[in-house]
Nucleic acid binder design. Structure first.
Lengths: 177, 177
DNA sequence: TGCAACTGATTGCAAAATGCAAGCGGATTG
DNA sequence: CAATCCGCTTGCATTTTGCAATCAGTTGCA
């Protein structure tokens, strides 16, 4: 559960935090997909994480200080997960990962829209997005002028469409069988 | 051995390439530590990779197009591993990882010198460094003016000292026992 | 010439991580 | 009041990892 501390090298320590197959996927879905609940993360992930792994990673990410958990006032059984500042500052890493993947890996057109947007916008756009996340997850006052287009919405719109279409497909498979 | 392709998301695909505990460590040692041989990677890594894992990852990274292997003309048994352009363009990701780790994780002072240098130099320094790597690994003509200070040397000097001191410690332990 | 040290690996085995399906008690919804 | 949803746990099979010993071939040195 805890971190290994194989060495004090920054790259190594970063890898010990999210150098596994799922941690960054979960954070990606929270950051870009707006997922805040266990079930949203479970069903909304394109990659299909198992519930025990998800539970384990959420616990781990909380222990590491990347996430916090709170009761959902509107529903006694629901928990709301929030990103901490530590997690929000992963945005530049995500952007770089996306940019690299877009160049070198067989990404699907529809799913790389987000990465493209982040790449085109560059650091200023990342900053605005991080600011929006702070507003959403930390309750920080938004510095974005009211009426300005939300990066969050732009980033999520395209992705939601893909996820929804995938959910549809799964429904059809179930119906057919 | 092959990639999973759980989804075509750029971040996911990137994670499938180096979302494990060792691949990026190996690439880090090649990029920043100048390691080119199996034994150098085996003994020079601060984290202590096992030889079977190293062999497996080198094979995998070659299959994925991040590394190439060639005979060392000076030694019939030695193999020289080289970075491809695909691996060289990981430098910005490494820089971001290092910068993030330096802020949020208990990095050791001496080992974060590299990350600090990359952070201070910013993208222009990354570009120069990548150019030097292309020169070293791909035989590309260097665009760095002769006489200009080598980023490579600056980055490596500090690290070598740490590795050497660690090797010394290990020697003392052996001698004492 | 002979032998120790070194080359890039491989093998066997134990331990840990992962993946899958089913289920749990409680809360909510229709 | 029954069906569904909530976050999560359990049991178990499979896969990945870590460790230590070892391999056959090469090299450097006496």
């Amino acid at each position: 559960m805890n971190i290994d501390r194989r060495s004090g090298c920054p790259i190594n320590l970063s890898l010990e935090v999210f150098g596994d197959r799922w941690s960054l996927i979960i954070l990606r879905d929270m950051i870009f997909g707006g997922r805040r609940h266990f079930r949203e993360l479970l069903n909304g992930s394109l990659e299909g994480i198992a519930s025990n792994i998800l539970a384990d990673r959420l616990k781990r990410l909380m222990a590491l200080g990347l996430l916090t958990k709170a009761d959902d006032p509107s529903h006694k059984q629901k928990a709301i997960y929030s990103l901490t500042e530590m997690a929000i500052t992963l945005v530049p890493i995500m952007a770089q990962l996306g940019a690299w993947g877009r160049v070198w890996l067989p990404v699907s057109e529809e799913l790389s829209i987000r990465a493209e947007l982040l790449e085109k916008g560059g650091p200023p756009l990342w900053e605005q997005f991080m600011d929006e996340l702070r507003h959403e997850h930390l309750g920080a006052p938004s510095r974005t002028p009211p009426g300005a287009p939300s990066v969050r919405q732009q980033l999520r719109a395209a992705y939601e469409a893909v996820v929804e279409r995938k959910a549809d497909e799964l429904r059809h498979i179930k119906t057919d069988a």
